[in-house]
């Protein structure tokens, strides 16, 4: 999160797990074929978010696991998402202390780059395995992800900003 004077509650592991479950469910929704390209990869989005905000909890390993789940769920080549997610998790992690103090809109741009990178990695893997190029519309969802980055961050931080008395 950007620099602020507000003190935040610690994040529970359960909450992180919950958000990832939600992200997986959203990714596994039976999207219509026409809108499927425009739905952002929520799992990747949450990986970037949590590695940015909770680098000690979410890292390359978690990203890898989630990637394996996504591969099985999507019926892709096993390891495709895992590899891409691991790479973006590492990149986020390596610049985490810098990115963490960026304002939201800059974080959104970084996220856009990350998601594009993950998609590009997956496309490269598929191309190497002999698939044909899926078209540029494949990358449209990441733009949407960057657009919702700010509201999403505020939404997730709302949980942390709550007074402790109310939460219990």
């Amino acid at each position: 999160m950007p620099v602020s004077s507000q003190l935040l509650r610690p994040v529970g592991g359960a909450f992180i797990t919950f958000t990832f479950i939600v992200a997986l469910v959203i990714n596994l929704l039976p999207w219509q074929a026409e809108v499927a390209n425009f739905t952002p990869d929520f799992v990747a989005l949450f990986i970037v978010y949590w590695t940015l905000n909770q680098p000690r909890r979410v890292g390359v390993g978690v990203a890898f696991m989630l990637g394996v789940l996504m591969d099985v769920g999507d019926g892709n080549v096993l390891g495709q998402h895992a590899f891409a997610y691991a790479v973006i998790a590492y990149l986020t992690l390596s610049r985490q202390r810098l990115l963490n103090v960026f304002p939201f809109w800059q974080q959104a741009l970084v996220t856009l780059g990350m998601l594009w990178l993950s998609q590009a990695l997956m496309v490269i893997i598929r191309l190497l395995l002999g698939a044909s190029f899926v078209g540029w519309g494949y990358f449209a969802g990441s733009v949407l992800a960057a657009i919702i980055w700010t509201p999403l961050s505020n939404l997730l931080l709302m949980y942390q900003r709550k007074p402790k008395s109310e939460a219990l």
Partner: peptide, 13 residues
Amino acid sequence: RLLIFSVISLAMI
């Protein structure tokens, strides 16, 4: 970690 996991995932691929 990245190296470990990417090796694993590439091997999986």
